[in-house]
Design a protein around this nucleic acid. Structure first.
Lengths: 249, 249
DNA sequence: CGGGTTTTTGCGTTTAATTGCGGGATTTCG
DNA sequence: CGAAATCCCGCAATTAAACGCAAAAACCCG
């Protein structure tokens, strides 16, 4: 097999699988590892692949690792936030959890909106504070430094005293069978209280988290009124929720 | 699995869920915990994640801060904060108001200090949250967007329920005759409650505010236990307070 | 076609990277 | 304070990479 031919083969393989192992390639093409290594080195010099110990990765996969991934998921979250905002009306009492999606939503609230937002999430509160017409109610208690949200019995008791029109939950994992699950015990307690207190529960989740499960259960799926992801409501992976009578946006 | 591949996987996971546990990762990818730890260490060195005991956090989630407001006469406030910190001891329950002097103090808290800080001031809370050993209790209620502090009957009621060892008040105006005065009615209500609740009241004030008066009265001078300014205690303008039996630092 | 040149390849050796493990220090939490 | 989990350090084994070199293949050109 010619050198160019081999390299084309490798390139195809790496773009297909996002990675190749030198050891596999050499047994596959029947050349020595050195040859494979030299090929990978050349392809890497041309920027076609990223060479790593043991093989190579697709350059499109790794090259600019953080920015595109972060921006991409940021876009998704903005799209979710946009849909969520369409549920808001003037005069509403809105309860929100923490999480980056909620913060994204907070940033995008229309300037003219007049409503009351209640939350224990510090990052969310910071955004709400910047809004000209929003009343901000902060739920107090001990601050969890991990999740940057107030947690504890006082916070839960406070939430039980109110009856918000709508509740937005940033979600870590949701599954048709297992319902909403999460990985922080204290945060779960709080979310439970939020769900109980609210007239309407809206679950915000990027699609990657749909059909995943975390260790601690928050609630069953049927407690949710509306599910919002960045996907169109017709997407196959969302159909289980549609079939359970949940409104999907 | 290749090293870079593994790290990309971890990065995706941490950006999705805001945190990862080393123990879960190692069973998931089937490598030893040391390997995971080394990966996390490398990602942390590149600033991609924040490494913590037991796992790692998303670095984008870690940055919660207000726009760094230019602090007026910061040097003086730092000097005041330094003196105030000398009053702290491990295990104390500390109640603080808002204000830039308090924030300055929050930034300068010694790393080894273990104490519980209670406040309704958002900027102060943000600083306390960054401290490794401090328990942070957030007093909830409606947020005053002007003063970035929670105000209202709930906050006052909450403060009345506690008995902190010491209370630090950022002060807008203090005068031997008129006592502490301020210009925001709601904030004044809160400060009154704070003073009543605390065993010891420490008043932080830069010298230019000493011997000035604002429209609304907070309390008489004799409620104060300790007065801290950036001046040495012997300064003439502080003598009226010394004569009234107030400890001046 | 033949000889010289360049390229490519494989091999042995040396060097570096990666990983898992043991033991002791440190942290966390009840 | 004590137990359990976690971290840190150094070591050793495995694996991959790098390097020089020589044989083989391909190429070039008269």
């Amino acid at each position: 097999m010619l050198k160019k031919e081999r390299q084309a083969y490798i390139l195809q393989k790496v773009n297909l699988h996002n990675k190749v192992l030198s050891s596999l390639l050499c047994s596959e093409i029947n050349v020595s590892e050195d040859t494979i290594r030299r090929d990978l080195q050349e392809l890497a010099d041309e920027g076609k692949v990223i060479k790593v110990h043991g093989g190579a990765l697709s350059s499109s996969f790794y090259e600019v690792s953080l920015p595109p991934a972060a921006v991409y998921s940021q876009q998704k979250k903005k799209s979710i936030a946009q849909k969520a905002i369409s549920l808001l009306e003037n005069g509403m009492f809105v309860l929100t959890s923490g999480g980056t999606t909620i913060v994204e939503m907070a940033r995008m609230l229309p300037t003219h909106l007049r409503a009351t937002f209640i939350s224990g999430s510090i990052p969310a509160i910071l955004e709400y504070m910047h809004h000209p017409h929003i009343e901000v109610i902060l739920v107090g208690d001990k601050i969890s430094k991990n999740s940057k949200i107030t947690v504890g019995p006082e916070a839960i008791a406070k939430i039980k005293q109110i009856k918000p029109d709508i509740c937005f939950l940033g979600t870590n994992a949701i599954d048709p069978e297992q319902g909403i699950t999460d990985n922080d015990w204290e945060v779960v307690q709080l979310k439970k209280a939020m769900i109980e207190a609210s007239r309407k529960v809206v679950c915000l989740s990027i699609a990657e988290k749909v059909n995943t499960v975390q260790p601690i259960k928050v609630c069953d799926t049927d407690k949710i009124d509306i599910l919002i992801t960045e996907l169109p409501p017709e997407s196959p992976q969302l159909q289980p929720f549609v079939n359970m009578g949940i409104r999907v946006l």
